[in-house]
Amino acid sequence: MARYDVAILGTGPAGLEAAITLKIRNKSILLLGEKGSSEKVAKAHTILNYLGLPSVAGEDMQAAFLGHVKEMGVEITEDRITLVYPMGDYFALQGKNNEIYEASTVILACGVSAGKPYPGENEYLGRGVSYCATCDAALYRGKTVAVIGSSPKEEVEADFLTEYAAKVYYFPLYKAEPKVKEAVEVIREIPREIVGQMKVKSLVTDQKEYPVDGIFILRESISPANLLPGLEMDDPHVKTDRQMKTNVPGCFACGDITGRPYQYIKSAGEGNVAALSAAAYLDEKRRQA
């Protein structure tokens, strides 16, 4: 398997700036995220304080970013990483569909997730609560499960679960009408709480209580502490120093994930620092080898 020098998670200003800086430093990079950069950038109204781009609309800024990246020959691999695991002298990264990538260093630039965990979510994680249908579906043969989907992308996961579970409830957290298999029961209620005793017993909504054996919570972004086990947090942000180093050797973070202010120019600046720190870390390791 190809082992990259640096894996960058996220294609907002922090991730893209890190990518072009590392490209200039001649490092091999794996840039993972949405091909169209960050949705947050595209949706922004007018940005007034980005140096060199006066009074720019979010859409135009995104186009400028992506044009720059393309010109530098940086490619975006469209995938969402569900787990980063330190293997000693490298990191293994697991993609949404169980692809495994390897990189010597990792830069976390995946933004900050607004979602708070449901009451009971952390308590019953691994005891009925799961973030990965592909991983755990087979453990729910003949059982009843609930799937909480944050976007239509998660509908295939609910469909997949019907191959194992006897009953699948789907709770969409969005307005569009879900296109799921007939076996999936779509419920338009708002999940409120996960109730259990030793393990999950039910999902409570704003209207009813559903007895279930498992609850699959599928969100756009996973909390960094669940993404990289052992990562030191200053909730909801990742703790870094001025070099953008985290407590995990070889892992750096930049952008909104490291804390306020949530500004594009701050994110890009941090992306630059994280990239240079990762490059220095790689060079130091090579000297030692």
Binding site: L83, L125, G126
Partner: peptide, 28 residues
């Protein structure tokens, strides 16, 4: 009651004394 894998269990003297779900670092 394995409901998520990987799960690690520790046994001492015939008793289960510890468990952990998911991928965790070697020191843990």
């Amino acid at each position: 009651n394995i409901m998520s894998i990987p799960t690690l269990l520790v046994f001492k003297n015939g008793q289960m004394v510890n468990q952990s779900v998911g991928v965790i670092p070697k020191e843990r």
